[in-house]
Design a protein around this nucleic acid. Structure first.
Length: 503
RNA sequence: UCCCCGAUAGCUCAAUUGGUAGAGCGAGCGGCUGUUAACCGCUAGGUCGUAGGUUCGAGUCCUACUCGGGGAGCCA
């Protein structure tokens, strides 16, 4: 094989007309007599490579014709613009070398179930959809760091092994630490508060562990969370910080991952709306909305919409089923079958929503001030809006001990949740921290926490206490929201779920 | 922990009131010089999740268990 320019698929646009060599894997192959169409992936994208019989030695042509999916290979050829090809470029192959042939690659171009794909996660990462999500996750994480680094924040790494309970004792993973029980961190917040008193503006960013027995599309037992903490800030300041932060992340993804968003068929217009200011609601206002006419009408409207969607789906299903009975080309049958199975899935989902709608409407209507906002309540608020919504000033009793009581209304704390729009739900939780020594000491005692363990935390109020606060943003939830992925397990390379760790 | 649903070929799914286990994809062989989840022909591929029960007869009905999915609570 001639020595030519090694390049990547992402750089093909600068090599039109040149002979280059790609190093990658066979994503998919098609053959048509004396022409082979090999779609090659190299980690930077996909490229169709066209092999004409006679353009390369016959034995290489025969080898390529039989090459299994995900075989590794290098291909050399001339780059040309070709509209019909994925990515817009094509390689007219002049030479190829098989690096390592793959036989019986388990993941095929047809549909697979969730369990199967999770069991083959190490291979599934090579698929288009996963690849796109991973690229977007990378941008999200890069944007997180850049935002804080460019705005005067100092990174402080907080411990993963800790004796502190930040949120809730029930949800801790216990580890044996030289004979003493200790647990995996569920938040870096308490430690990062100490750092904020040194640097002013800080953030920690790392894995977080929660042993919550939650089997839902919004939960992982190990996830990544970034937690900024700022000295001399009030609740309004925090909201402003959070909306600028989230808007920056979305803007970065829009700038750097357009093609991935398109591949994932994300609603890009909706993302372009994500700019400050976000909506602001107090908890009490949220309660009013939930128990009021507006929600009643909204839920009724949703139900009508769901029912007409259901009718639509059912019509289409019977239409397709009728077609399937007739004489059709195999490819048409395949296509119909695929559409049918998608419709069946959607139908099940719509049915569940129809069933849940009255229950959720009832829960919302019966909501009483003082309870924590339930998942369905958050979803309703979130579905009513097209931009993220802050919900602030929750009842003190439902919230963590360190949240600052509102001096104007001692029943509530100066906290906030940020709900992503269109039904996605919570991606940020944060608060101003109690900075009064006596009030904080009383809260620690009231919650039955070991006072001794929290002496250092109280020291932060003994020596130069200032108003301060921060929040935590869940990386996987943010990625899921931006990519439109239903389940956050798709948004981390190797998800850890309750009772289930595949590899 | 509670509620709902599911388990049939490597994968995704069919199998009528209980009556001879099927299709597509994938794999193998052959055909086709512009395919896009290509197409056409042929071939191989099964302990119907496990254990019991009902029945002349069970993939189908009953019971228990195992595994999985979705939802609730809780949360990022």
């Amino acid at each position: 094989m001639p020595e030519t320019n090694k390049t990547s698929i992402s750089n093909l646009k600068d090599n039109v007309g040149a002979e280059v060599t790609l190093q990658g894997w066979l994503y998919r192959g098609r053959k048509s007599g004396k022409v082979l169409f090999l779609v090659v992936r190299d980690g930077t994208g996909l490229c169709q490579c066209v092999v004409e019989k006679g353009a390369i030695p016959d034995e290489v042509f025969e080898e390529l014709k039989r090459l299994g999916a995900e075989s590794s290979l290098t291909v050399t050829g001339t780059v040309r613009v070709e509209e019909r090809s994925v990515g817009g470029f094509e390689l007219a192959v002049t030479g190829a070398k098989i690096v390592s042939p793959a036989i019986d690659y388990p993941i095929t171009p047809k549909a697979h179930g969730v369990d199967f794909l999770l069991k083959h996660r190490h291979l599934h990462l090579r698929s288009q959809r996963q690849w796109c999500i991973g690229k977007i996750r990378h941008t999200v994480i890069d944007a997180i760091r850049r935002f804080f680094n460019d705005n005067g924040f100092t990174l402080t790494d907080t411990p993963i092994l800790t004796a502190m309970v930040g949120e809730d004792k029930q949800s801790l993973f216990e580890v044996d630490y030289f004979g003493t029980p200790i647990h995996l961190t569920q938040t870096g917040q308490l430690h990062v508060e100490a750092a904020a008193m040194s640097y002013g503006k800080v953030y920690c960013f790392g894995p977080t562990f929660r042993a919550e027995k939650s089997k839902t599309r919004r939960h992982l037992t190990e996830f990544w969370m970034v937690e900024p903490e700022v000295a001399y800030i009030d609740l309004d300041g925090l909201l402003e910080l959070a909306e600028n932060f989230v808007s920056f992340i979305v803007a970065q993804v829009l700038e750097q991952n357009k093609s991935q968003l398109e591949t994932l068929s994300v609603d890009i217009d909706a993302l372009e709306k994500i700019k400050p200011p976000f909506y602001r609601l107090t908890y009490s206002e949220a309660v009013e909305i939930l128990t009021g006419e507006k929600t009643k009408e909204f839920m009724a409207g949703e139900l009508t919409e769901l029912q007409s969607r259901k009718a639509e789906i059912e019509n289409r299903i019977s239409e397709l089923e009728e077609q399937q009975k007739g004489q059709l080309k195999q490819w048409q049958k395949d296509k119909n079958a695929a559409e049918l199975s998608e419709l069946q899935n959607e139908l099940t989902e719509v049915d569940t929503k129809i069933q849940n709608n009255p229950k959720h409407a009832e829960l919302a209507a019966e909501f009483r001030w003082g309870k924590d906002l339930g998942g369905s309540d958050e979803t309703i608020i979130s579905r009513m809006h097209d931009k993220p919504i802050f919900v602030t000033h929750y009842p003190k009793e439902t919230k963590a001990f360190y949240m600052k009581a509102d001096r104007k209304n001692e029943k509530v704390v100066l906290n906030f949740d940020l709900l992503a729009p269109k039904g996605f739900g919570e991606i940020i939780g944060g608060s101003a921290r109690e900075d009064d020594f006596d009030l904080l000491a009383a809260r620690i005692e009231a919650q039955g926490l070991e006072a001794e363990d929290y002496q250092w935390y109280l020291d932060l109020r003994r020596y130069g206490s200032v108003p301060h606060g921060g929040f935590g943003l869940g990386v996987e939830r943010t990625v899921a929201w931006i990519t439109g992925e239903k389940h956050i397990r798709q948004c981390i390379a190797f998800p850890r779920m309750m009772d289930k760790v595949y590899i």
